[in-house]
Write a protein that binds this DNA or RNA. Structure first.
Lengths: 108, 108
DNA sequence: TTTGACTTGTCAATATTTGACAAATATACA
DNA sequence: TGTATATTTGTCAAATATTGACAAGTCAAA
């Protein structure tokens, strides 16, 4: 069972034997705030995903998947929605793609 | 293929033959802003879901599913994440539930 | 061309998130 | 024990984002 994004960062940090202060510096972040992120009391900022990927030499796409799935999980957990939502969301993504295609006939 | 949440509202409004101004009043909203919502230029505010359900006599759970799936779809569409994210999200929701259970041994 | 429906642009007010710092607590070890 | 380092927590002003409101615009039907 997947851990939260905060716990994932903590795991990476520990595996690489960095202190909060050390990792926070690499991410251009306050160590107190990184602590909160790891403990799920603040959100990790999207714009630092790239730095995080570079720090631990991770594939950005994988990291993004971790990050956005966390985002979704928190939202759905908080709102008591059942997993039927995923089916709808997939359909809507397809719809948005389709919509973008038909509209981009103007963009050339 | 599912429409966006804004288009869904517009459909409901048209089926019920209401003007923007009429529906906006029921939702305690400016008609100009409702127009933007229907056209995907603003977000519908979560806190009005209940009013919307009452107005059109819809099941709130179904409406929520429409709403949050839209929210997720927009996010994932914007970030180019593939559908693997859904699998991770489901796992994380389970993890959060599990975590809440083990922690709530204190809440009694 | 008037009327009603809808769209678009703008902006101050409000709400939320963030960065930063101080202080408290925990941990390790001489 | 004491002390150095690591981590956690609380707070708050500043930066950002969202919302409500209104004016001015387009559009379509009569």
């Amino acid at each position: 069972m997947k851990e939260t994004f905060g716990e994932y960062i903590r795991k990476l940090r520990n595996e690489n034997e960095l202190t909060l202060t050390q990792l926070a510096a690499k991410l251009d972040l306050d160590s107190a705030n990184l602590s909160k992120i790891e403990n799920g009391k603040r959100e990790f900022d999207e714009k630092r995903l790239e730095k995080l990927a570079m720090t631990f030499k991770l594939d950005l796409a994988i990291l993004k998947a971790e990050f956005y799935s966390d985002f979704i999980a928190k939202k759905l957990y908080a709102t008591n929605c059942n997993n039927e939502v995923f089916v709808l969301a997939e359909q809507k993504i397809e719809y948005l793609k389709q919509k973008n295609l038909t509209q981009s006939k103007f963009n050339f």
